[in-house]
Structure formats: C-alpha cells, structure tokens
Simulated assay, not measured.
Amino acid sequence: MKIATAAYPLDWLDSWAQYEDKIARWVSDAAGQGADLLVFPEYGAMELATLAGADAAGDLERSIHAVSDRMADAAGLHRRLAAEHRVHILGASAPVAVPQGRPVNRAEIYTPDSRQDHQDKQIMTRFERETWEIAPGGPLKLFDTTLGRIGVLICYDVEFPLLGRALTQADLILVPSCTEALSGYWRVRIGAMARALENQCVTVMASVVGKADWSEAVDTNTGCGGVFGPPDTGFPQTGVLAEGELNRPGWTYAELDPAAIAHVRADGVVLNRAHWSEQDPRAASVTNSSLLSEGP
C-alpha cells in the first residue's frame, strides 16, 4: 500500500465552497500519486471556525461550537471523496459537541465503500483540560479495514505506552498531531517511533503546520509528516520509512508491504511485541539496594 500523511496548514476560509475545494484538492493530489491511505492531522478542522467570522474564530468557546456545527457537512464531503477516489481517509480531528458533558476531540475515518467511524482522544493535554476544557471521549477502537487493522492515537495519546499496547493487534497506528513547539513535535514523534518499536507495527504521524493568527487555540504550529516502523528486519535501520521537511506544507508518502509487518513480528532480530508480557513479573519485583555511605 501507499500511505500519504499531511503537513497541513490552516487557512482563513471565506466560504464553505473554499473549504470543499481545498479538501478535494488535497485528496485528489494524494490519490493521484497512488495513495491508498490519507492521514490528516489533529485539529486540522479548526479552520472551519473562520466561517463563523473573526469574533467566533478567535474565541476559545465559540470556536469549538463553530467547528462542531460544521462537522456533519465535513463528514459528507470526506465520505464522498473517499468513495470517489477509492481511498481510506483519516479526517482532521475537531472539537465535537456531545449530548452530555464537554466537547471531545474526535477524528473520523472513512472507507472507499462509504463506511465511517470515529476515534476520540483519550488523554487531554494541559491546554485542553485546563484552558479549553476538552473532555476525554469514547474508548479506543481497532478498525478492521481492507488495508489491515488500524488504530488511532491522537497526538498526546501516543506518548502513553499502555494505550499503544491496547492496540497491539493493529498493523497501522495513525497519529494525527497538533503541536505548537518543536519540543512538542518531537515528544509526539518519539512516542510514535516507540509505539512502532514496541508493537512491531507502522505508525503514521500527521501535523498541522504554520501560523493561524486568527485562533487562540491553534495560532502557532510546528511539525511535518512521518511514517515509522521498527528498526528491524524488512524496515530501514533508522525505523524511518519517510519524513517530510519541517513546517513545509504538503503530503509525505511511504510505500509499505503489509507482509513486512507480519514477518518482523514472526521473525525479527528482536521480538518486542511477543516479549512484552515478560516485563510484568520483573517490574513487580523491584527491590531496594542501598549504595549510600553510612558515614565515617
């Protein structure tokens, strides 16, 4: 399969048609390069807040609802494009209002046969929980697709190994991200590469890039696209299948033979995934050993 992962800039939109044209162009470009799976980043849908005007786009609470109100239409657009181009798409995540409680951070996945499901972010960053009040959503899911089993860990979620371990049956873990600083980008990237090592799978990181001065939530963004695997049999020695240029908008592409995942899991130089359970008794039996001086 061929994977396309986005370094996606947020634009000011003057009309819904402008958004339709933008997404259609991005999908068409990737499909035209032979991509089977397209991955957009976390909070890439925040540009939809601009359709409600500058006051709404610049207000944290109003921007949530301005975007949420547009997500049904965005889903229809993505479903149509996935079917038209015969591709799988992970759409950019968005704050979505739910019937009870605070909004959640939700990414929708679309298939070529017009199927759709979503993954909610599990663990909120400090900004999300302390300032924006975005809430944890529904449970982790494992999506069975014609491309293999796919999991989604949204940005901060990929920094937690037990969430990754819960997706041990996934062949691909998609990591849509939105990071302000270079350090944030590297935290997520290191997490993505660690999950690929532990699960002997492929992780796919997408990023929001550039400035969006009209938004208090996503005004500064740093990152690039990247596709990572275990640095082992059948994969690059660095574990990097592909990486984009930092902060340069566009698609990053990687070719992947799904059989390589099955092979490294069965007969890699190391078998991290199979040996994971050996940690449990050893981690539980840590003992203290004092090397402190008892004095003169």
Rank of each mutant, 00 (worst) to 15 (best):
R80C: 00
L81C: 03
L81Q: 03
L81P: 07
L81N: 04
A82Y: 06
A82C: 05
A82H: 06
A83K: 14
A83M: 07
E84F: 03
R86P: 00
R86S: 14
V87Y: 09
H88I: 05
H88A: 08
H88L: 10
H88W: 15
I89L: 09
I89W: 05
I89H: 05
L90M: 10
L90P: 09
L90S: 08
L90Y: 07
G91S: 12
A92V: 01
A92H: 02
A92P: 05
A92I: 00
S93R: 09
A94H: 13
A94T: 06
A94W: 09
A94E: 12
A94R: 09
A94L: 06
A94Y: 08
P95L: 09
P95H: 12
P95C: 10
V96W: 03
V96G: 04
V96Y: 06
A97K: 14
A97E: 15
A97L: 12
A97Y: 02
V98A: 03
V98P: 01
P99D: 06
Q100M: 07
G101N: 09
R102S: 10
R102I: 00
P103V: 07
P103R: 08
P103T: 04
P103C: 06
P103H: 08
V104L: 03
V104P: 00
N105I: 03
R106G: 01
A107C: 07
A107V: 05
E108F: 12
I109V: 15
Y110W: 07
T111R: 10
T111W: 13
D113W: 11
D113T: 15
D113L: 07
D113R: 13
S114A: 15
S114Y: 13
R115H: 12
R115A: 11
Q116H: 14
Q116E: 14
Q116L: 13
D117W: 15
D117P: 00
H118M: 04
H118R: 11
Q119S: 12
Q119W: 12
D120E: 07
D120I: 05
D120W: 08
K121S: 02
K121A: 11
Q122N: 04
Q122W: 05
Q122D: 01
Q122V: 14
I123V: 15
M124E: 13
M124K: 05
M124R: 11
T125A: 09
R126Q: 10
R126W: 13
R126A: 14
F127G: 00
E128T: 03
E128A: 15
R129V: 02
R129S: 15
E130Y: 05
E130S: 13
T131N: 04
T131M: 13
W132P: 00
E133H: 15
E133P: 00
E133S: 02
I134P: 00
I134M: 08
A135R: 05
A135V: 00
A135F: 02
P136A: 04
P136F: 08
